[in-house]
Design a protein around this nucleic acid. Sequence first.
DNA 1: GAATAATATAACACTATGTTATACTCGACC
DNA 2: GGTCGAGTATAACATAGTGTTATATTATTC
Lengths: 305, 305
Amino acid sequence: MKQKLRLRQFEALMAVIQHSSVTRAAKDLGISQPAVSRLLSDLGQTLGFSLFDRRNGQLVPTQEVRFLQSDIQRVLDLMDQIGEVSQSITERKAGHIRIACLPGFATSHLPGVVAIFLGDRPGVSITIEPDRPERILEWMIDEQFDFGITDGFRGHSAVESRDIDVRTVCIFPSGHRLEALSEITPADLADEKIIHTRRDSDFFKSLANAFFESNTPLTTLVETRQFTAACELVSHGVGVAVVSELDAVKFANEKIQSRPFSPAISHRLSLVRPTLKRPSAVTLEFIDAFAASLAPYQVVFPKGL
Amino acid sequence: MKQKLRLRQFEALMAVIQHSSVTRAAKDLGISQPAVSRLLSDLGQTLGFSLFDRRNGQLVPTQEVRFLQSDIQRVLDLMDQIGEVSQSITERKAGHIRIACLPGFATSHLPGVVAIFLGDRPGVSITIEPDRPERILEWMIDEQFDFGITDGFRGHSAVESRDIDVRTVCIFPSGHRLEALSEITPADLADEKIIHTRRDSDFFKSLANAFFESNTPLTTLVETRQFTAACELVSHGVGVAVVSELDAVKFANEKIQSRPFSPAISHRLSLVRPTLKRPSAVTLEFIDAFAASLAPYQVVFPKGL
DNA sequence: GAATAATATAACACTATGTTATACTCGACC
DNA sequence: GGTCGAGTATAACATAGTGTTATATTATTC
């Protein structure tokens, strides 16, 4: 017999083994007895050996069948599992998201968002890969990741982005004379050594421009890539800095103080993903969840703008 | 969609993933392109999400599909495996045989037969369980074993047996005065202390009868259940014995000699199996192979009997 | 924008799987 | 031994899954 093995036949077989009776198996499967009867005889033909022996009116599986039984059960279980997983996927309860982000996010803001997101979705898993913006951009273009969190993004045809401007604040060590002020301007920082981001970064340019506009010289103390590093330095009393409010709140403790900076300078984050690659539903949900998590820190533009 | 997941759809899916093209997948599966096309769309409907994205004319599986891919592949592999195993079973190349036997067989004659039998059948496995005849009989009745090798079997409705009479020989230590004889009679053993099997065994009764007929007293030295033990004792020079030729040849070495015994006494072995339980094809093959292996030791009855 | 290739859709054929009706098989019981 | 009933197999037919060919639609390429 060149017939193919069919799942339905296996289902019938296992049901009959379980119930030792074609009639009961049929009832269990919710179909008629003759249907089961034929499924079995077809299967027997295909396999080439008899499946059951009668013994006092009971059907007992032959040794050959018992030999195959565990494999057959495994197939049926796997099929069920696939069904369940695909169900989870459509309900956005399963899937995998690969996230590339700036190092600062990997350690501070992102984990909290991820934890909440996964809490409700037992089947979802997430990979987080922190690196420099240039590398994140590459990864998006290569479609190696589903979602990226970066800054200084200039746009790219293969990358779709959604920009979020986050408020920034001036931070300084506790007990500093600036503590007396409720808002800090460049002029207030005239005599301070400043920790700031790289000179080629957009954020530095905005900052430098603010100082230039108020005719205040900007004295560099440390130049760093990351706001986190700046916060760390300030908390050790090394100097003052203007950083994203997002980072400032993570570092808020007795050693560090923050005040709004005027003129308001925003730090532009870009939530990016590969344009051409169709994102999975969970990925989109995650991006939304992440964007929402940033809302409290987001710059609210005046309506007129 | 309440549709059921079908194997054929999975086959189509994997083929398309492999070839990145519906047309090539169809060619690979040996069916028409529209058939594959519909299998995919049906599967997509059932699963509830799209399966592929087009990219430069290539079809790339969505993340959801990749998430399920390994499970799907496993199902297909398992189905193949089941097909192959069942093929092996019908070709008598796979299965399992549970053998219960007398302890003597487990160590001497049986392993050789098993080794040759398995050599030609890579998928077959065998369990050997040595024990006393009473236990072997129980196991047959309970159908816990497929095949038993025993002696002193009296018949039982639930057990089918095939008796084989094995020649017996008289064994004695090398250098013994019996070495001079070409055949040994009870009279020759009149002054010997004899190692023999239990008094309630059939074999002992035949032996005792032979002595009785020739008016020779039978002096017991050791009473043992097993021929193997008797051989062992004889090889240590303890005494003489009449044992199955089967055991005698295994112990044939410089320390031990054997001669035919007259009158000829046979040792009746019974190859047994559960009557009601339909034996697997490999089991029957094995029983035949085992019976054949005993042929050289079997008593040839005169035609007139 | 036309030509070509790939894929989807339509209409239909055959097989798997379901149905109901009915015949067979076997142990229980008189 | 004959009858009964339970369980199972077979027959005849309906429906859904899976195949076909023909054709429309869509994507890619020049």
